[in-house]
């Protein structure tokens, strides 16, 4: 019972926060709200007996990625969105396109709901199967990660290296101005 309440609470928080994220004019506010959403999601992960993921979510996502976003926003001193002259001439602004886009979105939602309804195990209770202790400890995650998924792990490290180099190169000032 308390689980259900907690679930609804945090789920609601995550959804509301995300909905507000996409509604904000100022990117700063969006970022803050998104951090809130991530926190709620983290709580959901704990409910799902995944403490490692919950902690990783906070540390990596909320702690590193969002901070990076903040840095960039403050660096750029980004102006707020304005419905400037770009909008008047853009092809996507035409009424036909807007209606098509709306229809497409509706279609997507319908498909998603339909998919969800058809999932067989939708009614099964989460948390029934498996040994809680075995699957929720960091030790077990680590063991599986470094044995079965060893190659993916190493590949990911190279991916991060590449991303780092790419980010530095892309963001560097053009040498001509020095």
């Amino acid at each position: 019972m308390p689980e259900t309440i907690l679930f609804y609470l945090f789920a609601g928080m995550a959804i509301v926060a995300s909905a507000l994220v996409i509604g904000q004019r100022n990117p700063m506010y969006s970022i803050m709200l998104l951090i809130t959403s991530f926190g709620a999601l983290s709580a959901l992960y704990i409910l799902l007996d995944a403490p490692f993921v919950a902690m990783a979510q906070i540390i990596v996502y909320a702690g590193a990625i969002m901070v990076l976003f903040l840095f960039v926003v403050m660096l750029l001193n980004a102006p707020q969105e304005d419905a400037a002259e770009w909008d008047r001439t853009h092809p996507l602004r035409r009424p036909g396109t807007a209606r098509f886009g709306a229809m497409l979105a509706g279609l997507l939602i319908v498909q998603l709901i339909w998919a969800l309804v058809r999932v067989n195990e939708s009614s099964t209770a989460v948390g029934a199967a498996g040994d809680v202790a075995a699957i929720s400890s960091v030790r077990s995650v680590g063991r599986v990660l470094f044995t079965d998924y060893m190659f993916a792990f190493e590949a990911t490290s190279i991916l991060i290296l590449v991303a780092m180099v790419g980010a530095v190169l892309l963001a560097a000032r053009e040498t001509g101005q020095q």
Binding site: H90, P91, L92, L104, A105, L107, L108, Q111, A115, R118
Partner: peptide, 24 residues
């Protein structure tokens, strides 16, 4: 080739909807 990123995103979405619909 509209040069508009959002148009490309739109075509992505169309593709997603179609594939999803096919599998459903």
């Amino acid at each position: 080739q509209t040069g508009s990123v959002r148009a490309y995103a739109g075509s992505l979405l169309i593709g997603v909807v179609l594939i999803l619909g096919y599998y459903l």
